[in-house]
Lab assay of single mutants.
Amino acid sequence: LDMDCLPYGWEEAYTADGIKYFINHVTQTTSWIHPVMSVLNLSRSE
């Protein structure tokens, strides 16, 4: 699993305190969880 590779439309950013988060420019949303990890967690719960 390549954690450096973000899906299309996603960008890694940091808060003023240096905390990493992710921006989805396609849906105009943000997430604290890496988008690949959130997809993996969803697929495990099914």
Rank of each mutant, 00 (worst) to 15 (best):
Asp4Ser: 11
Gly9Val: 05
Cys5Pro: 10
Gln28Ser: 10
Tyr21Asn: 05
Asn24Ile: 00
Glu46Gln: 13
Asp17Cys: 02
Met3Gln: 13
Arg44Val: 11
Leu1Gly: 08
Trp10Asp: 06
Gln28Arg: 10
Thr30Glu: 02
Ala16Val: 07
Ser31Glu: 05
Ile33Val: 14
Trp32Thr: 02
Glu46Met: 00
Ser45Leu: 08
Asp2Asn: 09
Ser45Trp: 01
Asp2Ile: 05
Met37Trp: 05
Pro35Ile: 03
Ile23Leu: 07
Met37Phe: 10
Thr27Ser: 10
Asp17Thr: 03
Leu1His: 10
His34Ala: 06
Arg44Cys: 13
Tyr21Asp: 00
Val26Glu: 13
Pro7Thr: 08
Val26Ala: 13
Gly9Ala: 03
Glu46Cys: 15
Val39Lys: 11
Leu6Arg: 06
Ile19Cys: 15
Val36Met: 15
Ile33Cys: 13
Glu11Asn: 03
Glu12Lys: 00
Asn41Pro: 09
Ser38Phe: 08
Thr15Leu: 01
Ala16Tyr: 07
Leu40Val: 10
Ser38His: 06
Ala13Met: 02
Cys5Lys: 13
Glu46Thr: 11
Pro7Glu: 05
Gln28His: 11
Lys20Thr: 04
Tyr8His: 12
Phe22His: 05
Ser31Gln: 05
Tyr21Met: 00
Val26Tyr: 13
Trp10Leu: 02
Ile19Ser: 15
Asp4Lys: 07
Ser31Trp: 01
Pro7Lys: 06
Trp10Met: 01
Ala13His: 00
Pro35Ser: 06
Tyr21Lys: 01
Glu12Tyr: 03
Val36Trp: 09
Leu6Ser: 03
Asn24Lys: 00
Ser45Ala: 11
Cys5Arg: 11
Gly18Arg: 03
Ile19Thr: 14
Leu1Asp: 14
Glu11Ser: 09
Gln28Tyr: 01
Ser31Ile: 06
Pro7Val: 04
Thr30Cys: 12
Leu1Glu: 13
Val36Lys: 15
Thr15Glu: 02
Asn24Thr: 01
Thr30Lys: 05
Ala13Asn: 04
Ile33Asn: 11
Met37Pro: 07
Val39Ala: 12
His25Trp: 01
Ser31Leu: 03
Thr15Gly: 07
Gly18Ala: 01
Val26Thr: 14
Ser43Lys: 02
Ser43Arg: 11
Asp4His: 02
His25Pro: 11
Leu42Ile: 10
Glu46Gly: 14
Met3Phe: 12
Gln28Thr: 03
Tyr14Thr: 08
Ser31Phe: 04
